[in-house]
Design a protein around this nucleic acid. Structure first.
Length: 358
DNA sequence: TTTAGGG
DNA sequence: CCCTAAA
C-alpha cells in the first residue's frame, strides 16, 4: 500500500462518513496501483483546471457584444465540501423526481441524422441496445448530410419490457435508499445520433442546452452523461482509426466496436469543428502562412489548426495547401490579433529586422 | 447550476 | 458513471 493510497482511502472514508449510506470503499481496492504511482506526485496537489474554451473566447471577446453575463458573473458559492455532498444529493433527488413516471414510453422528437460520407455500416457493428429506439420516429436511418440509408441492426439483447423492468428496479431502489446509484443503461444508437446532432447544432460544451433540446425525453441522461458520452465517442473514434491502420479486423472488447464506423466518422468530423478536449489556446491563435514573396498571410480558422483536423496524421490531411493551390504551405501560429494588427506588426518587425535590431 | 476533467 | 473544482 502506497502512502497515496492511504491518503486516498482516508479522503474517501471522510467522504463516505458524510453520505451515511452504503459504502463503496471497495473502489479503493480496485484502483490500479500504476495509475496511482503516475499521479503520485500530484496526489496532494489541488487539482487545477484549465480555463474552458468559451471562457477564453469570451475573455478575448470581452469587449465585444457577445460577452454574456453567464461566465462573467462571479460565483459566490462556498467551496465547503459538505455543500458539495449535499448538492450532489439534491441532484439525485431531482433525478428521482423526474423519474416518478413509471415505465413511460420514450418518444424521440428528433428526426434522423445524416453523415457526410455515407459510409456503409458493417454488419454486427451495432451491438448496442437498440430496443428503446422508436423506429416510428425515425423512418429510415441516415446520418448527418448523407443520403445513403444506413442499415441498422436491432440486437435482441433486451426487450422493451426488460428495459422498463430495469428502470422500475432503479426507481424502487431510489425510493427507499438514501443514496441512489444510477443504473448503467447503454446508449442506444438513436441516443448517439441525437448526441451527434446536438453537437452539430450546439457545438461542444453546451451540454445542458443539448439536454433541454434533444434529451428532454430521456430523463436518465443528464448533461454530464451527454458530455461523458461525447468524450467516449471521441476516444472510440480515435482508437478506431488506429486500429484500422494496423489490423483490418480485430475483435476486441473496446467500445468502438459497438459504434458504427459511419458514426465514428461523423464524430471525427465534429471533433474537427469542435475540438474536445480543449487544446492549448487554439482559438486565440490565427494560423498564417508565407506566400511566395515570403510575406505572412492569415489563414482562415477552418483550416488545419495544430493538427487537430487530422489528428496529426499526414495521411488524413495530406498537407497544408490553400484551396486550388498546389503550393505547400508552412503554417505558423500567431497570438490572436486582428488581421490589420498582424500586418501592422509584421511590417514593424520587418523594419526592425532590416535594421538588425531585435 | 453548469462544465471540465480525473477517476 | 462518479466525483468535485472552477466558473
Amino acid at each position: 500500500m502506497s502512502r497515496d493510497l492511504q491518503v486516498k482511502r482516508k479522503k474517501l472514508a471522510d467522504h463516505e462518513s458524510l453520505k451515511t449510506s452504503n459504502s463503496r470503499v471497495s473502489e479503493i481496492e480496485l484502483c490500479s496501483s500504476d495509475e496511482r504511482d503516475k499521479a503520485g506526485a500530484f496526489a496532494m496537489q489541488k487539482r487545477s483546471r484549465r480555463p474552458p474554451r468559451r471562457y477564453i473566447e469570451e475573455l478575448a471577446e470581452s469587449k465585444s457584444k457577445f460577452y454574456s453575463g453567464k461566465c462573467g458573473v462571479a460565483c459566490k458559492r462556498s467551496k465547503n465540501s459538505f455543500l458539495h455532498v449535499r448538492s450532489d444529493k439534491n441532484n439525485r433527488q431531482k433525478e428521482t423526481q423526474e423519474e416518478t413516471l413509471l415505465c413511460q414510453d420514450k418518444s424521440y422528437d428528433v428526426g434522423c441524422i445524416q453523415v457526410p460520407f455515407g459510409l456503409p455500416v458493417e454488419a454486427g457493428q451495432l451491438e448496442e441496445n437498440n430496443s428503446s429506439m422508436n423506429s416510428e420516429d425515425c423512418k429510415d436511418h441516415r446520418l448527418l448530410r448523407s443520403s445513403e440509408k444506413l442499415e441498422i441492426e436491432y440486437s435482441p439483447a433486451k426487450s422493451q419490457e426488460e428495459i422498463s423492468e430495469d428502470e422500475c428496479v432503479l426507481r424502487r431502489s431510489t425510493q427507499k435508499g438514501s443514496k441512489q446509484i444510477k443504473h448503467y443503461t447503454s446508449w442506444t444508437s438513436s441516443e448517439v445520433m441525437k448526441l451527434i446532432e446536438g453537437v452539430s447544432q450546439c457545438g461542444v460544451g453546451r451540454w445542458s442546452e443539448m439536454k433541454r433540446l434533444l434529451f428532454s425525453s430521456c430523463s436518465h441522461r443528464t448533461a454530464v452523461d451527454i458530455k461523458d458520452k461525447w468524450r467516449n465517442l471521441l476516444k472510440a473514434s480515435c482508437t478506431q482509426l488506429q486500429k484500422e491502420r494496423k489490423i483490418k479486423r480485430d475483435i476486441s472488447k473496446q467500445a468502438s466496436d459497438h459504434v458504427p464506423e459511419s458514426v465514428l466518422q461523423r464524430v471525427r468530423e465534429l471533433a474537427v469543428i469542435y475540438p474536445y478536449p480543449r487544446r492549448k489556446r487554439i482559438f486565440s491563435k490565427i494560423p498564417r502562412y508565407r506566400d511566395r514573396t515570403g510575406q505572412l498571410q492569415c489563414l482562415e480558422s477552418t483550416f488545419c489548426i495544430q493538427g487537430i483536423c487530422c489528428n496529426n496524421n499526414s495521411e488524413d490531411c495530406k498537407d497544408h495547401r490553400l484551396p486550388g493551390s498546389s503550393e505547400k504551405l508552412e503554417i505558423e501560429y500567431s497570438p490572436a490579433k486582428s488581421r490589420e494588427k498582424i500586418s501592422e506588426d509584421e511590417s514593424v518587425s520587418r523594419r526592425n529586422t532590416q535594421k538588425g535590431s531585435k
